[in-house]
Every structure is written in C-alpha cells, then in structure tokens.
Write a protein that binds this DNA or RNA. Structure first.
Lengths: 346, 346
DNA sequence: CTGAAAGCGCTTACAG
DNA sequence: CTGAAAGCGCTTACAG
C-alpha cells in the first residue's frame, strides 16, 4: 500500500492572459481595461464595459495582484506570525483575523515561529520581502532589537496577547487582570482557600507576568494561601511533584489549581491523572476553554477567551491604518466563566 | 478596562530602499546588484561584491519579491486550502507542509474554506490572483467543475486526504483501508463482536467513502455485527439515539463504537457521557489521536495519523514539480495504534 | 469618455 | 567581469 515516488511529470508553467491581450481582443487600450478592473469602472461607457467584460471572460483573465501591487496600491497582503500554531488559541485567533481580512480584500500569510527567536526574525524578514502591508505578531521573545526596524519603517504592527514593553505598539488580548480576578473570586466562592497557580516562563511574555502579578495581589486580598509554579519541558520541580507537594502542604485546607492557559490546563490534567487526584475535591480551573474540557473527570471549569473576537480586533486595528475604515475594536477582552465539576468540592 | 477605539494615527507608508539606490550608492549598475542577490553572485569580482554588500547593508535593502516574481521566476508562494482550520488534523498537516516549504524558499498562504463550496471557489481564485505556484487542497466538495480550470492551466495541485475522482491529480493521505483493518482487528482481538461505525457524510469525500466501504467488508470478514451512522449537525438520528439503539440491539454482544476521525471522536465522547456509558465495557476507538485522548475516562484508544509527515509529503509532491528536487515522499500513510482503556472490556 | 506614455522594482539576454 | 536596454503586468497622471 505504500509507495515512495518521485513525480516523473515535467511541469509546464501556467500561462495566463494579460491585460494587454484583453485590450487587444476588446479593441481598446490597456488603460481602459485597467479601469474596468479598478474603482473607475463607471467612467467607462456601457458599450466599452460590455466589450471588455466579454473579452476578459473569453480569455479567463484575472488581474495579476503582484503586478498591481508594484505600481499602485499595496500588496493586499497581511502577515500573521503566531508563536505556536498547534495551540487552539492561535488557530481561533487566526480564524477571526482571516475573516475580517478577507472581508476587506486582504489575504493573510500565516507563519509559525514555534517559539523560536531566530525563526521569528527570519519570518519577519520574509513577510517583509513579500511586502505585506502590516503584521499581527504573537511575539515569541523579547525582540526589542528585532522590532525596532519594523517600527521605524512604520510597517503597521499589532501585538497579540504579549506586550513587549514598547509603548508605541498596539496590543490586543485578554483582560488579564479581570480574568485572574474572575478565576480567584470563583474559587473563593466555591470554598477553596489555597491556590496553586501554574504558568509558563513569565520572562518571555508580558501577559504571563501580568497574570502572575495579579494572582499574587488578588489571592492576598482574598486571604487565600497562594503559591505558583512554572510549567515547562525542563521545569524544576516537575508539575506532578509541585502539585503533590502543594496539596500535602495544605492538607487541612481546600486546595485548588489554576492553570494560566490552554497548554498548561492540558499538562495539569495529565498531572492530576498521574497523581490519582480527583477534580472537585482538589479544585481545578484553567484559562482558555477547549472542546474536550467538558469530557475530563467531572468537567473542567474554564475561563473562555473570545478568541475569534480577538483575532478580528487585531485585524481591525491593522486595517484601520491601511484604509479609512473606522472599524470598531477593543484592546482588552473579557473572558466568560464556564463552571463545571472540577470546582465543585462536594 | 474595556476600550473601544479607533486609531487616530495616520499611516505613513513604509518606504524601502530599491535596487537602483543600492546601485547608485555602490557606484555600479542595477544588473550587478541584481546578480549579487541572485544565483550569479560568484560572477562578480570580490571588490564589487564588497561594495554592493556595504551599500545594501547601509540602506537596509531587501529585494522586493513581488517585483522579482513579475519578471523572472515565480512568486515563491504556495497555497494551502484547508476545509476546517480548527481541526487539529489540518493544523498538524499545515505545520508539516510549512516546514518543508520554508526549507526550500517558499512561503505558504493558508486559507480556510470552512467546508463551503463557494468559499473554496473564491479562495482558489484569490490564490490564483496572487500567482501562487501550486496549491495543496483539502477539498471541500465535489468541485470537478471548479478544479478543471486549475488543472487545465497546469497549476500544480495536490489533494489532501480527499480524492475527487480525477485520476490525473495526486492525492496524499492516510492508508484508509489499512487503518480500518487495524481498528477492526484490534477491536476483534479485544473481544468486541458488534461495531458501530460513526462517520461523516460520505458523499463529500472519497476518504470517508473508502473507510466506510472497507469497514463493511472487513467487519463481515471478521464476522462482526456491523452498523454505521452519519454524525453531523442535523443528522437523523442523533448520535446519542443511534448509539443507545445500537447498544440496546446488541445487549448480548460486546459492543464497540469506531469513530472515523477526530471531530467524530469528540462528538462520540460527548454522547457517551450524555448516555452515561462507560468506555471499555462499551468499547470505543477513533481515528486521529489528540492530546486529550488519554484524559477522557480510561483513555481513548486511537489510530494516530502521521499528520506532520502527510503535510510534508504534500509539499514535497508539489515542490518536486517546481524545481528539480527529487524529494522522496509517500502517497498513503499508515497510522499508529495507541491502545488505551476504552478498548479494554474488563 | 478614452488613450499614449512613463514608471513600479526587478531580471535577463545581449554586448562588450 | 560588467553594464545598457528591454520587458514582466499593471496603474496613473496627463492630454485629448
């Protein structure tokens, strides 16, 4: 059934009709044909329009956007650089952004940095080479130095989720403080009095830092015992060890774990299973709702981000600068609490 | 915390150094600068090379790929049209394809048809307008008519997962027959004797048809009682009803459900939960492995597709026609069986 | 309402 | 080894 193969076919480059051929067939000038396919179509007499339309149809003519972008307007291309394309968050955002782009005649080039600084740099260059008119960036690292040239060139740039400490740049994302408050208030209301916050390396992203800081402040306000730990491949201690120790340390207190995002939620769920912990008696909630959250144990309580809206907002922010569009959008988005069994103590 | 806003900033279009400016600064001709950035760099004297390099660096010059594509080679752009971008399958394939493309100097424009014929048509046109050199298509529908023009134009096209009955087109995907055999053999070995196959509307995709047909043939060979049902928004009967009826009908026989893909696996898992069925006693396995499969109930047994490899194969197939690359790839990929508790009867 | 002409940023024979 | 010139497919003042 398997077949390793090399295609023997020789490739014949596709050959398309050009503006000039349409003009010739329609018995008119390039100028008129160009007008027909642009915003000045109305300035053409009905007869001419009909002739051009017929000729174009006969030749199956489609304007070459590359050529068009060389002279007149821009490339009608926007770039989206995500840090981890396998993350459902990225995909949903991408979906939202693409919708809005298409709606306004733009296409989206999506590229994936895999959380790698060097790759991010390369891809930024590549997007630049294709002359994208703007970039939505879910930044990987701390690329002050990398971004500076982009910013100086006035390439419209919108940051997703992660701030970079450059005040001139727009950042679209979750209302981090609001989200943490919602989570802790919910856990508190459910009777939990000790919380372990599981996040990812905070030095890489402002949103992670913001969430962690708010966690510390808010848990203190609520008089909850609070700890935090970093999840990650080679994190020390491991998640399992950290959770086990936390629960042991607070054996007299109702304990809960709060996961900072979707990836972490997955990792914590695995740790619960490995440790034989029952969700509910040991509370668990996560930021980001995924389709499987209802299926694990008694169901995992989550804070759902409006990911599509975030993607659209990022695109809207960019588009507003490229054309006089006045699209409404918001910078900071509130999540929705979805309560399930994992935060039900009894 | 919320802020609806319209950006007040006026956009200053980015202005880049051009070939001609580099030439001027380096005191040489456009031709030489062009050569410096192409494959003929070696034909330039070391001194000239140094001068151009210096000038380009000073001006932060980057070749405009749009302009380049107009004259010489192609656009260095490949298109990937996926039917459902929120499906982990699509994302993994995309990841694999993108890697290989980048490795060979191509960028990938990804677009999402949302399983909509009209959108697919539009997007195909759009990709065409950007003069992509080839398209990887995870086809939505039955677009014989839509594809014909592409094929006639000799635009390199590779089909993903779904065949369209056009023998001239390459199709990359799972070894559907092998996969079904592995699944049924496993269920049989675990003692299940009645199987319900849950798939999606088969008329829309050859791979769905192939899996269903093989399911019927193989279950008969194994003397298993077999039924099948279509999952979907407005499918009749609903999944819950169908599963409940199936289990009731075979109350004397060990029953199992086989889900045809990742989306269906999710839907079936929800149905199990709604019905209060225990996985294992009622067997359950699915094609496509997802990160959460180990977390639900006793763990869901799956057939993992080598999705990254499939994506790379699709890209390799395309790339082979664009340049003399001789990349090895395979058309039909075998899955890996991951046995978990959901197919453990006791 | 229509068209001749210059030019977008690059590449590629063709001469030296 | 180097460069002048034509041209890729389009748009856009500028004239009629």
């Amino acid at each position: 059934m398997l077949a390793y193969t090399v295609l023997p076919m020789v490739f014949t480059p596709p050959t398309r009709a050009t503006l000039i051929e349409v003009a010739r067939l329609a018995g008119t000038s390039k100028t008129s044909v160009s007008r027909f396919f642009g915003p000045e179509r109305d300035k053409l007499s009905p007869t001419l329009q009909a002739r051009i339309e017929g000729a174009a149809a006969a030749l199956d003519y489609r304007p070459n956007l590359m050529a068009r972008s060389l002279k007149g307007s821009g490339s009608r291309l926007l770039g989206l650089l995500v840090a981890d394309i396998r993350n459902p968050y990225s995909v949903a955002v991408m979906h939202g952004a693409e919708m809005l782009c298409r709606q306004h005649g733009y296409a989206l080039i999506v590229a994936n940095t895999d959380n790698d600084d060097a790759r991010e740099q390369d891809l930024l260059d590549a997007l630049d080479a294709y002359r994208v008119e703007g970039v939505i960036l879910n930044a990987t690292g701390l690329p002050e130095r990398q971004l500076a040239p982009l910013r100086d060139r006035a390439l419209p740039l919108v940051l997703l989720d992660r701030d970079l400490g450059l005040p001139e740049l727009d950042v679209i994302g979750l209302d981090d403080e609001g989200a943490i408050d919602m989570a802790l208030d919910h856990l508190h209301a459910k009777g939990y009095r000790a919380v372990l916050y599981v996040g990812e390396a905070p030095e890489r992203a402002s949103s992670r830092r913001a969430r962690l800081e708010r966690f510390e402040a808010r848990s203190q306000m609520l008089a909850m015992a609070a700890s935090s730990v970093i999840a990650g491949k080679d994190a020390e201690p491991t998640l399992e060890v950290a959770i086990e120790a936390f629960v042991a340390r607070h054996s007299a207190t109702p304990c809960a774990v709060l996961a900072a995002n979707g990836n972490v939620t997955l990792a914590v769920a695995h740790a619960f299973r490995a440790l034989g912990l029952t969700m509910g008696p040991v509370g668990f909630m996560g930021i980001d709702d995924m389709p499987w959250c209802a299926l694990v144990g008694p169901g995992i309580t989550t804070l759902a981000q409006p990911t599509e809206a975030i993607g659209q907002a990022a695109a809207a922010c960019l588009l507003n600068r490229l054309m006089p569009l006045d699209l409404a959008f918001q910078y900071r988005h509130r999540p929705t609490l979805i309560a399930r069994g994992s935060t039900q103590r009894i």
